[in-house]
Nucleic acid binder design. Sequence first.
DNA 1: CGAATTAGTCACCAATCGTAACTAATGTCA
DNA 2: TGACATTAGTTACGATTGGTGACTAATTCG
Lengths: 223, 223
Amino acid sequence: MPERRTRKPPYTIDVVLLTPVRGQLAVLLCRVPEGRDKWTLPWEGPRTGEALDAAAGRITKSVLGEDAVWREQIGAFGDGKRHPSDTEISVGFVGLVPMGTPSPVGGVYAWFPIADIPQLAPRQRQLLDSAISMVRTRMDQSPVAFRLLPQMFTLTELQQMYEFLLARRLHKASFRRALHGAWLVEPTDEWRSEGRGRPAQLYRYAPRKRRPAQRGIRLDFMS
Amino acid sequence: MPERRTRKPPYTIDVVLLTPVRGQLAVLLCRVPEGRDKWTLPWEGPRTGEALDAAAGRITKSVLGEDAVWREQIGAFGDGKRHPSDTEISVGFVGLVPMGTPSPVGGVYAWFPIADIPQLAPRQRQLLDSAISMVRTRMDQSPVAFRLLPQMFTLTELQQMYEFLLARRLHKASFRRALHGAWLVEPTDEWRSEGRGRPAQLYRYAPRKRRPAQRGIRLDFMS
DNA sequence: CGAATTAGTCACCAATCGTAACTAATGTCA
DNA sequence: TGACATTAGTTACGATTGGTGACTAATTCG
């Protein structure tokens, strides 16, 4: 996106990349070349014949060197709100990046905690808000939290990741019951001693069966 | 969409309009002028300065004379699949239309039951599938079913609408318990006698309080 | 009248949830 | 070494919610 094209693209692809940084969700922003404290989400125009999802992956790789571990389209945003490009619409994507991923050097990119975002173009601000709420709602339908952890992890680490992403405290016993009920994890025979206290067993992500479709208003189907 | 533009638009807005027809969900399609049995979703290019959602409303009105009673964006579709236009992407919308809405005369438009859809361009086929699954998943988060009924309705009618949209049978007692628990409806003092059997009380849609956020894996929050 | 039909409720049991209290295994420090 | 703090993991139990059949209620039809 710092690279400017000679012709205005028909639309842009904007990517919201999120990662945990010091106990907070953080988003990757890029310094706008013109203007001193102006920031933007990573974005680019499409290439011909390229799928939308592939374009989002390409942009992520060009910015971080690696693709995100999970990605989903948020939707198309337009509605007359301003954007760094002059295009009428942008297609937004959210991506999650494992914790500890370094932001590229050069002072052009930086991670901003979501509680402390600098001013963005209105369309991008709207896009970012949708991205965060999409991650939260996808949390229990899609194994998002696992993607941010190493292959093996303790259940306490997993719970902390859930708490982190949901921004809510969870009950230990209930969390484990729900987890085992969903058949998402499998214990290994390794244990990790983390300073003081009893060592924790390590688990790996190993989904066993489809978990039942989630219900909102809780309608009861016939048998 | 039958009207052709002189210049190719940067993208299209495609609208999936759904309504109940004879016990089935049906989608509105438009006959392609060229080609004898080719059909397409209603679509058009954007107008400058027009919000995406407004454009979807405009297209709906231009096709049916009325706007949909509920509408939501599905997302942007591209991924190299073919589309009646030559554009690289389309922004899809789903809309629900009250039952009994006549399809416009002229033989250009027709309602097709979703079990029996003629061949569509691949991108539109994908869009239609997403539209149907979006309606189903939004059912219990958003009061969709009420929009397809008259202002006053019996609980049996409401249950049938849910069963219809979800394509599943529901249990009467549980349905009513869930409904009352969600504080979505309010009884009126009118009754309707529908031939044989006890008359049914009429209800109206009157949401009282926010129903709690739906949970999928059922994590238990701390108090 | 009684049978059929549709509306609406109740009651019971099973499953799940929310929570506190418990056991277990380690490190720390007197 | 032994008491204690600390973290992991389990158990148990009352409360709530869910699934279901059977019940009562009000009407039409013959």
